[in-house]
Amino acid sequence: MWLWFSRLGSPKWFYELAGRWLPWTWALTVLLFVAGSALALLFSPPDYQQGETVRIMYLHVPAAFLSMACYLTMAIASVIALVWRMKMAFAVARSCAPIGAAMTALALFTGAVWGKPIWGTWWEWDARLTSELVLLFLYLGYIALHESISEQSQADRAAAVLAIVGVVNLPIIHFSVDWWNTLHQGASISRLQKPAIDASMLWPLFTMLAAFFAFFAASLMSRVRNEILKREAASRWVKALVKA
């Protein structure tokens, strides 16, 4: 295992490996999305309470899940990067941010639109939506910090520290937002409760979740390859690559 871990550390090796895997991953992503959408839109029943709007759940839940998973990936990569000083891990951490931010924005948007028929307003300070909003600020803070520091390795390390501080704070923020939400709104108002999911809804949800994760894998690998080019611009193999 250790050999694999240290091999993973060499940018050139990862660049080529990812290069070989990318086409398949993109293909899998498209396939899963097609299957997922078909299941979600056509082959699943409307909810007895929410009717057809339940189909938005198949987008909101995976997006929200991915936005959290993406931040965790970023934080874990940051820990590895700072502890073992692995350039590759910095590249992975930096690549997660824009994808995570976009997914958080999507989760916020779909959550708000999904809430409209239930609550009658376009934005409801629901605990989960509020946590997503704060998560978006954390992502934007990470990207802003990384972009503001000109020197590459300093920007990487500073942003890594911020990601770790952020991931430590996430549960605290989540808990305090939940606590604040129940304090002010009480549990009576139906929160963005996922309707009781019966089997027929599980399949579309899992397929869409798989589709989102496949997309995450594919776009992350592509972004990491770009970050490698940016960081290894001075090395011979990149020059040869560019010239070819």
Partner: peptide, 22 residues
């Protein structure tokens, strides 16, 4: 979409847009 067309389709549209933007 059972009368909820604007909500459901904007969400699916937004998802497509987000993926395309990425």
């Amino acid at each position: 979409m059972g009368g909820y067309a604007p909500y459901v389709w904007t969400c699916y549209g937004a998802t497509l847009l987000t993926l395309a933007v990425i």
